[in-house]
């Protein structure tokens, strides 16, 4: 039995879990050692946020559900993450841009959730906001560095923008369970767009115009990429059920 509150918590945790998994794919493959560590740190921060949301959701479910069963034993249609976070890493530029677009969304979101009437949600948001502040700073600087870098890095960032922009509309198209957050999505969008506009301008990147926006992730309708991601993420528990370290 999924109440709106539980589904909302899953949505929040799924966003961070899937992005964490994507970022962690860079572990050992970063362009330089220092940035490899930086992105892996961010992946771990996001995983920590996921655990908080899942643990709370599991405590509300009360039917033997645990944070592990939520992560490892749900099928793709039972994931409520937005489409943006499941998009493939592409090159370093696309990975950075995806992180930036998402952090710029998380920042105003957690700022609002920090004063949510549900104490647990408020506490999770307050803790996570410190991490997100750094993620946003780090990814913003990289977007500027690459956008305003060489002709090669500039053109790659434009390509990354083309690839990812159609997945940003969904962030501000609330699903029914998001009423739990009690946040006006128009306000979130304004905050997000202000930030994105400023950073893209500094990066000498054009703000994309109106385009068709993809949606569905929040309702469990995902792009093909999530199946592959989950296959890797869940392989061990699916193959050896109940196995522990």
């Amino acid at each position: 039995m999924h109440t709106d509150l539980i589904t909302f918590l899953l949505h929040m945790g799924d966003n961070t879990l899937i992005l964490s998994q994507r970022n962690s794919e860079w572990c050992g493959h970063g362009p330089v050692l220092e940035q490899d560590i930086a992105l892996t740190n961010i992946a771990l921060d996001l995983l920590g946020q996921t655990r908080n949301f899942y643990q709370y959701a599991a405590s509300l479910s009360g039917d033997g559900t645990t944070e592990d069963s939520l992560a490892y034993l749900r099928t793709v249609r039972e994931y409520y993450n937005c489409l943006l976070v499941e998009q493939p890493n592409g090159d370093w530029g696309q990975t950075i841009l995806r992180q930036f677009l998402f952090s710029a969304y998380q920042y105003p979101l957690y700022e609002k959730l920090k004063v949510h009437p549900d104490d647990t949600i408020a506490a999770i948001a307050a803790k996570a906001l410190k991490e997100v502040t750094y993620h946003l700073r780090w990814s913003s600087e990289w977007v500027v560095r690459l956008g305003d870098g060489t002709p090669e890095s500039h053109s790659r960032m434009i390509k990354a923008l083309d690839n990812l922009w159609p997945y940003t509309g969904e962030l501000f198209d609330p699903a029914s369970y998001e009423q739990i957050a009690a946040i006006d999505s128009a306000i979130l969008k304004t905050a997000w767009l202000d930030r994105v506009t400023a950073v893209l301008a500094e990066a000498t990147l054009p703000l994309p115009g109106q385009t068709f926006m993809q949606s569905g992730g929040k309702k469990g309708l995902h792009s093909e990429h999530l199946d592959y991601l989950l296959a890797e993420l869940q392989y061990l528990q699916r193959t050896y059920p109940g196995n522990e370290w």
Partner: peptide, 16 residues
């Protein structure tokens, strides 16, 4: 550590 400028060096230092 390696970094392109001071800003990046401080962030890298924070992470490393």
């Amino acid at each position: 550590l390696h970094a392109a400028d001071a800003k990046m060096a401080i962030e890298n230092a924070r992470d490393v």
